[in-house]
Design a protein around this nucleic acid. Structure first.
Length: 763
DNA sequence: CGTTGTCCTG
DNA sequence: CAGGACAACG
């Protein structure tokens, strides 16, 4: 560096001083010897392999515990759901039917279910909606969906109905040349005003008048009425029947689904590699067990009907497809392993879900249609053919595909765990356009994250980025599904809260300190997206975690939305219960996220805890060699990136340290200090506090005395140098660095333990 | 050329 | 604290 100093001298203030260094790397001087001795010492003390092994087993153990906890939680969630809604798939509808039967069993035959009713029918619609939303969310969740159903359709149908009736009655009246009041009366009845609007006296008068009708006409009228009554009963009966069939079918499908998953699971998780897949398997497994246990004795014989046959055919179809070579081979590759979720299982799951949804939405459609549209004058075709009325879903300019695609997201869990949020289906959602955009994308994210390693920045991720931004509107809708588990399972496990530490790539095994979830998550939370992006070049194998960060925000916003919705829900009666359930799910989410965060920690990178540890180590060593770092961060799988990051950390530490030193040295000089004797560093001096704040923020570590000495020496060096006017030399600090680097002391053995944070801080 | 370290900037 | 520029090694 001969010419260096001279050139730099000129540009000291403005240009960068390329003075590089007081401290050469482990070369030549005593520091080199130091480092070498240390290195040999450590390698002697610490046969790396064995330690890593131990560590690994520890990790696995911890992981197993996690899984168990997860499993328990899942079960708890499930049983909770069970308690809340013992018969998820069907309760509401059958309840609805029952209610209707009871109500209509009496003397008020035809007027109950009219869509014009301002009270009762609305309740029914709610129920229908809340149920169907599980299967056909767009109907209820989209702002247009519901009006479409309950107002457009109902209005239209009722209108027609009324017109027809009016015509009929008027016809009768014309023939009888009776007073218009009869027609009016008839109309009123048709409109089925609220009961109180028809006083007893009025109805009595009406009866009297009716009796004046010619026998023949009156008879035909009554026949009409009773015939309609019959029709309705028949409808109801059949509907109920169909619903029951559907329920059975549903259960069977679930059964089937879980059988498949059970079998695939068992093959899946022996490798000890705690991949996302095994996690997923755990979840599925837990759920499957629960579900199976629940529905075991509920398996009944199926009443083969048109629908069931169809469903079965579909199942067979799926099984066939399952054996075929998987189609989208591009879908199954994940960057870190071939062992992704079994494509067959996935595929089957997808299709089953879809089919379940389709079937359910058909039934629901039928129910809604029949009940909201008052049976018209003609003999109603009681059971519309099992096809989804396309028009209904086309209202948003969307087609049916969108419908089922959306359902796919939720149905997986929905079948087993009734969505508590469904009950909010009646709350008018802000916008449907956002929803229709975002939802399928969420779904696609799942599949792409799971199976396709494809460039995550690719097309379909784009809208995902928008969505949380367009946010409250767009993603309130997803929030009506399970915040967990399906979406969550789809997130890579380094993801939600863990995204930031995912950035520090390369760490492969669990560091038990990363189990310190609270600290991890909280500190991670704050940083999220800004840092880690830059690290991806280092670990190109891992997909950018932006999406994961967004996933988090998605989840969070979902949860927030859930709560918000429960707050604003007009149906406060059930709101509390729902809120409880929401809370339950939300808590689960948090735990789940935390757990997954733990998983990510050993997947790669340096965690905030590593940073903390490094800072504490700085109290002992200001110039750790890379070998030393490797020794002390044995739970980190080192690569170039990790190494340089660690080195960079210490470089940054030093920077701060020296800046503080210089600052206080100058300050002391300004304060009139003339002798280094007056400079001492105590635990309550300002400089110490600053340093402690920086390296030991929580103040939960006892700073070694040696550090105070070193700091004092450093301070005096700076002081002397400045006093001597050496600071005019751009490389004036170099000499100081040289001195300081020799003052490194041994880092206590405990720092070699990945657990050191816990052990140190609990002392 | 790769590693390590500093300086500077954000 | 990270990134980048840059320098000084080996």
């Amino acid at each position: 560096m001969p010419d260096h100093d001279s050139t730099a001298l000129l540009s000291r203030q403005t240009k960068r001083r390329r003075v590089d260094i007081g401290v050469k790397r482990t070369v030549g001087t005593a520091s080199a010897l130091f480092a070498k001795a240390r290195a040999t010492f450590f390698s002697a003390m610490n046969p790396q392999g064995s330690e890593q092994d131990v560590e690994y087993s520890v990790v696995q153990h911890a992981d197993g515990e996690k899984s168990n906890v997860l499993r328990k939680l899942l079960k708890r969630a499930n049983s909770y759901e069970d308690a809340m809604m013992p018969f998820p798939g069907a309760t509401i509808i059958s309840q609805l039917l029952k209610n209707n039967m009871n109500k209509n069993g009496g003397t008020e035959p035809s007027f109950q279910a009219s869509g014009l009713s301002s009270t009762g029918s609305e309740v029914h619609q709610e129920d229908i909606c809340s149920n169907s939303s599980r299967d056909s969310p767009p109907e209820c969740l989209s702002p247009f969906g519901r009006p479409t159903m309950s107002q457009f359709d109902v209005d239209r149908l009722c209108d027609e109905h009324l017109r027809a009736k009016r015509a009929r009655v008027e016809n009768i009246i014309r023939g009888m040349s009776h007073s218009p009041s009869v027609a009016l009366r008839g109309n009123e009845n048709e409109r089925e005003m609220a009961p109180q609007s028809v006083s007893p006296r009025e109805s009595y008068r009406e009866n009297k008048r009716k009796q004046k009708l010619p026998q023949q006409q009156q008879q035909s009228f009554q026949q009409l009425v009773s015939a309609r009554k019959e029709q309705k009963r028949e409808e109801r009966r059949q509907l109920k029947q169909q619903l029951e069939d559907m329920q059975k079918q549903l259960r069977q499908l679930q059964e089937k689904f879980y059988q498949v998953y059970d079998s695939t699971d068992s093959e899946n998780d022996e490798d000890g590699d705690l991949s996302e897949d095994s996690m997923r398997s755990e979840i599925l497994d837990a759920r499957a067990q629960d579900s199976v246990g629940r529905s075991d004795n509920e398996m009944c014989e199926l009443d083969p009907g048109q629908f069931i046959d169809r469903a079965r055919a579909l199942i067979r179809e799926q099984e066939m497809a399952e054996n075929k070579p998987k189609r989208e081979s591009s879908n199954k590759e994940r960057d870190h392993g071939p062992n992704s979720l079994q494509p067959e299982g996935k595929h089957l799951a997808e299709t089953l879900k879809q089919e379940l949804n389709t079937a359910m939405s058909q039934v629901v459609d039928t129910v809604v249609k029949v009940f909201s549209a008052k049976p018209s004058r003609q003999v109603p075709q009681v059971f519309p053919p099992l096809q989804i009325p396309q028009a209904r879903f086309a209202v948003n300019g969307e087609n049916h595909n969108f419908h089922t695609a959306n359902q796919r997201l939720q149905c997986f869990g929905d079948v087993i765990i009734p969505n508590p949020l469904d009950t909010f289906g009646n709350v008018q959602m802000p916008s449907s356009t956002d929803q229709t955009e975002a939802l399928p994308l969420v779904v696609r994210k799942n599949s792409s994250e799971q199976s396709a390693s494809g460039p995550a920045t690719g097309g379909h991720h784009q809208p995902l980025h928008q969505s949380p931004l367009s946010a409250t509107a767009g993603f309130t809708t997803p929030s009506f599904r399970h915040p967990f588990p399906l979406p969550l399972m789809a997130y890579p496990f380094q993801s939600p809260l863990g995204a930031p530490s995912g950035s520090f790539s390369g760490k492969d095994r669990a560091s038990p300190e990363s189990l310190d979830l609270t600290r991890d998550t909280t500190s991670l939370r704050t940083k999220m997206s800004s840092h880690h992006l830059s690290h991806h070049p280092c670990s190109p194998a891992h997909p950018p975690s932006t999406a994961e960060g967004l996933s988090l925000s998605l989840i969070k916003s979902e949860c927030g939305d859930l709560q918000d919705m429960s707050d604003i829900s007009p149906y406060s009666g059930s709101a509390k219960k729902l809120k409880n359930r929401l809370q339950h799910l939300y808590n689960f989410d948090k735990y789940f996220i935390a757990s997954s965060n733990c998983f990510q920690a050993f997947r790669e990178g340096l965690s905030p805890n590593h940073l903390k540890k490094a800072k504490l180590m700085f109290f002992y060593t200001r110039y750790p060699s890379s070998n030393m770092l490797k020794t002390y961060f044995s739970d980190v799988k080192f690569n170039r990136c990790i190494t340089s990051q660690l080195i960079k950390w210490f470089s940054n530490f030093r920077e701060f340290y020296y800046i503080q030193m210089e600052k206080y040295a100058r300050q002391a000089i300004n304060d009139g200090v003339t002798s280094t004797e007056e400079l001492s560093i105590t635990r309550d001096c300002e400089l110490y506090r600053a340093l402690n704040m920086h390296y030991n923020k929580a103040n939960d570590f006892e700073v070694p005395e040696r550090f105070l000495e070193v700091a004092q020496i450093t301070l005096r060096e700076f002081f002397n140098a400045i006093i001597a006017g050496k600071d005019v030399d751009p490389s004036w600090k170099k000499a100081i660095y040289k001195v300081i680097c020799k003052l490194d002391s041994e880092v206590p053995e405990i720092f070699k333990s990945p657990n050191c944070l816990q052990e140190l801080l609990h002392e």
